[in-house]
Amino acid sequence: MGRLERSFVIVNSLGLHARPAAMVVQASNRFRCEIQFEKDGLQINAKSIMGVLTLAAARGASVLVICEGDDAEQAMAAIGKVFESGFGER
């Protein structure tokens, strides 16, 4: 059982809007571990789209990703990739 924490900054201009949220949630759902996102004291389940949307993270906002479970490492890598790519947007 591992627990990993890493911060990511939203880089695309539109922020974490609906489509990117769906991308992140899909990435999260491929793993068994518990994944939480945290922003401004609000912690949500990264496997649910409504939760991710609630963050309303704009460009420049920092989101803390917490993975806990067997495949935490792989999950963090996959989610990190999605964040760092700016959700395939500019």
């Binding site: 609906a18 649910s48 789209i49 409504m50 949307l53 609630t54 309303a56």
Partner: peptide
Amino acid sequence: GSEIIKHHMEIRGLGI
């Protein structure tokens, strides 16, 4: 509910 997603729901296969 939270201000943003109030009264909304996500159903897999249907969306929001």
